[in-house]
């Protein structure tokens, strides 16, 4: 029996993969199909591009009547509210409209005249909610869950696999990881962290036994101009990209927690380290000069099935 199956698919605008181990092939394909179905469900439900999605309906009704939302959507909105507070207003799910000013394929910084009307449409505190009815008060306002949708889908797929009995494997949605359990022999999966300045190279290899691992970086989308990196992570208050960090990786029990912690750390710029320290989770942050700041990596998280003695740690991180 093959030890592990790697099943690849396309989802949420990127590459997705399931690593399913210690089951036979039929079972692996069954599990993968159930997990893919769940990822697609979330993708379609919260897609900006599908007219019938809840997000499109909310955006189309901006400035108009309130829209009735279901329990899952309301809980995601609650989480977005927590993120707004935790980031001091820098993470705002209504900031997607700023996309119209920034075209990261062209190395051009928009002027304040271009940003001003768009910034007027950004304002999470203004989103109205009465019970299950949600309303965007001004025409042109938009919300989207692109900031943590992929991580949420990774957690849901991972929980589904775990609930169906999978004990060894992980879900990887374009770099947002939710590990269900270690390798069949109990050792950790070695997950490579991309080098922010050398495509194809790794800056570290992190051992993962269970839980979520996510990375936010300035290298995914953006351009270089005048010796400075302008990335796609925008501070919602100013509409301008952040620049203090090249990448931040966080390990937390949930992918959605890891992903939002890393994104908010990027947004907090020079206040990122106290924030990451206060979260209590392990992180690896690379500042604008390429210096590594980290806490506790490598090693297994405390408690539960993941606590098996890891194999003797290698003295230097090696690429997988």
């Amino acid at each position: 029996m093959r030890d592990a199956f790697r099943i690849r698919f396309q989802a949420m605008g990127g590459d997705g993969e399931f690593m399913i181990a210690a089951v036979d092939e039929t079972q692996a394909r069954r599990l993968a199909q159930a997990a893919i179905d769940e990822v697609r469900r979330i993708e379609h439900k919260y897609s900006r591009y599908r007219e019938d999605s809840i997000v499109s309906r909310l955006n189309a009704a901006a400035g108009g009547p309130a829209v009735e939302c279901d329990e899952e959507t309301l809980q995601l909105l609650d989480y977005a509210d927590t993120l707004y507070g935790a980031s001091g207003g820098r993470f705002d799910i209504t900031s997607g409209v700023l996309r119209r000013a920034w075209d990261f394929r062209v190395p051009r910084v928009p002027s304040s005249d271009e940003l001003a009307p768009l910034l007027a449409l950004v304002g999470w505190p203004e989103v109205e909610r009465r019970g299950a009815r949600v309303r965007l008060p001004r025409a042109g306002m938009q919300i989207d869950f692109g900031g943590f949708g992929k991580e949420y889908a990774a957690d849901r797929a991972g929980a589904l696999l775990s609930g169906r009995g999978l004990r060894h494997g992980y879900v990887n949605l374009a770099g947002d990881l939710r590990v269900v359990g270690p390798r069949p022999d109990g050792s950790a999966w070695a997950i490579g962290i991309q080098h922010p300045r050398q495509p194809g190279a790794l800056v570290a290899s992190l051992p993962m036994y269970a839980g979520g691992l996510a990375t936010s970086g300035d290298y995914e989308r953006g351009f270089d101009l005048d010796g400075r990196r302008w990335c796609h992570i925008l501070d919602a208050r100013s509409g301008m990209p952040v620049s203090a960090w090249q990448s931040v990786s966080v390990r937390a029990p949930l992918a959605v927690a890891a992903g939002t912690l890393s994104t908010i750390a990027m947004l907090l710029e020079d206040e990122a380290l106290p924030f990451l320290e206060s979260s209590g989770h392990d992180y690896l942050a690379i500042d604008r000069h390429g210096t590594l700041h980290q806490r506790a990596f490598p090693g297994p998280p405390a408690g539960g099935e993941a606590t098996r003695r890891p194999p003797a740690a290698t003295p230097h991180p090696t690429p997988t």
Partner: peptide, 26 residues
């Protein structure tokens, strides 16, 4: 837009909020 303000909630609150999301745990 509001002036720069320090994060109002510590990072530890994020995990608790994330755990409240539906279906993220088995």
């Amino acid at each position: 837009m509001a002036a720069t303000e320090a994060a109002r909630l510590p990072g530890s609150a994020l995990l608790a909020a994330a755990l409240a999301l539906p279906g993220v745990q088995p």
